[in-house]
Design a protein around this nucleic acid. Structure first.
Lengths: 344, 344
DNA sequence: TTGAAAGCGCTAACAA
DNA sequence: TTGTTAGCGCTTTCAA
């Protein structure tokens, strides 16, 4: 008895044999190249259909002179994070228009994992990569870039030259947030930030300092808490801040989960209508909380589109000097950032 | 002047030449295969390093007898959706352990787009696919499956046999939610659901009906609203329901965005502490709202892990009969579902 | 332990 | 318009 499942996958040769033409002709038909008679085209198409022929892009890109795989790599920190997945989606949409597929991976902000994934992508000969660089040195990225792989960094800039990047207005928007709080009369504005090794954290902190300076306020070192990786650490920090003899009347939380942690504490102490709060990064339902949360909103689809645009330009052969594109974020006033300090 | 960028990518041949061995020996070293003298291994490694050689998986998988690409495809509805991206992440984690990369795409619940993406994956000879089937017929999926491509459906079952799938307890958990509301004395429980073409919507509606029946309640047709695709439509529907002469005292919202839309309306009418609400699908900050929202929570990482486990088993050669795995969801009581009806 | 020859499925370069 | 030959970078097969 024949086992039906054991049929060999049909190739161009099989199609050619059935259509009584050469493989080259089949190739022309499959790829819609000119120089094939209308009648022959039909015969080849019919043969392909009969056999259930599927083109093999792997074999094709191996032989083709441009060596394109029609695939790009995306290496973000955590694909389940809303920011990362929104970016991925934006890149994917652009890729689809070029018939390009996306190989996606999460590097968990781990250098060696990022290096491994990069090697994996490299072995598959992706046409380019969009990367959220893991903290620390970027040797692996630089090395891959110098091999000639088109590369765009998002969210964080390269520590080496020669590659494009797309970031948001971390510093300027943070400054704006602090100025907003200061304009309401707040003089004791706390800063709660994520890991200091992150470029974005540093930028947001610098913006905070600039805001204070511009508003003529003095920095109170004890109101600055950093390395708050996760909502739990943020809760602890917020608790300590509010326990100070002279607690802050406003909080600037420089990251998503930090904002959530701080909110929990304010709520637990029933201070959420008395202590002002502005967070960096928008989040779902921020408008449904009480009070609704004022945030700095990044233009995530905009970041993704720009990154995609750049990588495809480079893949297309653009050799102009590297670009650092900055996509503006905006302050979304919802209430929590518009609370004035209690009169003294 | 030489253009440094014009160097040809080194191949195994180049490495072989430099190490003064055959390409076969290089192949053995690169793939850590036995049968290579310790001394030769070192010479080859050194040569590879000197030249900056990168193995070409594309060429390798073309020639190799198993034809594996060490790549799987993931085709979900929308990768920027938290449910989808959490699933992707779970699959990716499992894939990484096998040195497999993930080609990811969003089909937007569009059949023809799904078909196109499937063809793209197929052309790249992925070793298997994990798919969230788009609504309507599944001809393309079935066809691909019947070619022999290992396939696991998630969230929604296949309309054809012969393939694995992983879903959640849509019906049972919906029944449980309705029974919870009924046990508090609610007799007028509304159902607000997503598109009726979705299998999950149908299942959740069936669970709703079962819950009513089991509680001895009569179905009031006017309390059932379906095809609410997006928060806006849900808002409209909720408004209409609350405008009824005899409005519902409890809402069962069978999808994420529907829950959000309903909440907005309850809040706008200041009914959020008086009308009970249970939603299907958890969402971030559901516990920070007032009242905190009671939901049916799917075990998303569990779904993803199970799907990954199945696809890798099939890729590994498992030919046992197709499985329909069901991952239990759980009712998370937070407050909004524990509101009793006003006394009459 | 090592290598020579053939060929995976396809396209480039040329010729007819 | 169509076909022939060679070869992409690698692994298989088989021989040394």
């Amino acid at each position: 008895m024949d086992q039906a499942g054991e049929r060999r996958e049909p190739t161009m040769r099989d199609v050619a044999a059935l259509a009584k033409v050469s493989t080259k002709t089949v190739s022309r038909v499959i790829n819609d190249l000119p120089g094939a008679g209308a009648e022959v085209v039909e015969r080849v198409r019919a043969a392909a259909r009969t056999l259930g022929y599927r083109p093999n892009l792997t074999a094709s890109s191996l032989r083709r002179s441009d060596k394109r795989s029609a695939t790009i790599g995306v290496l973000f920190e955590d694909l389940s994070n809303p920011f990362d997945s929104a970016l991925l989606r934006a890149v994917e949409d652009r890729a689809r228009h070029s018939g390009v597929l996306v190989l996606a991976g999460s590097s968990e902000d781990d250098q060696s994992l990022q290096r491994e994934l990069l090697v994996s992508l490299s072995a598959r000969r992706v046409d380019g990569v969009v990367v959220m660089a893991a903290g620390g040195h970027q040797d692996a990225l630089q090395q891959e870039r110098e091999r000639g792989t088109p590369m765009v960094l998002v969210d964080r800039p390269p520590t080496f030259g020669s590659t494009d990047c797309v970031t948001t207005t971390n510093r300027e928007s943070s400054r704006e947030a602090v100025l907003q709080l200061a304009s309401l009369g707040h003089r004791d504005i706390a800063f709660l930030g994520d890991r200091r090794t992150l470029w974005t954290s540093q930028e947001r902190y610098t913006g905070y300092l600039e805001g204070l300076a511009q508003a003529g306020l003095t920095l109170r070192e004890e109101l600055v808490r950093t390395d708050l990786h996760g909502a739990d650490l943020a809760e602890t920090a917020a608790t300590e801040l509010l326990d100070l003899a002279s607690p802050p009347t406003a909080l600037f939380t420089a990251q998503n989960l930090v904002t959530v942690g701080a909110m929990r504490v304010l709520r637990a102490r029933d201070l959420h209508h008395h202590t002002a709060l502005i967070g960096f990064d928008d989040f779902p339902l921020a408008d449904m909380l009480e009070p609704a949360v004022t945030v700095v909103r990044q233009d995530v689809p905009g970041l993704g589109r720009k990154a995609a645009e750049l990588i495809f330009a480079r893949i297309g052969g653009d050799t102009s000097p590297p670009v650092h594109a900055v996509v503006p974020a905006s302050l979304v006033r919802r209430g929590s950032g518009e609370i004035s300090p209690a009169r003294t």
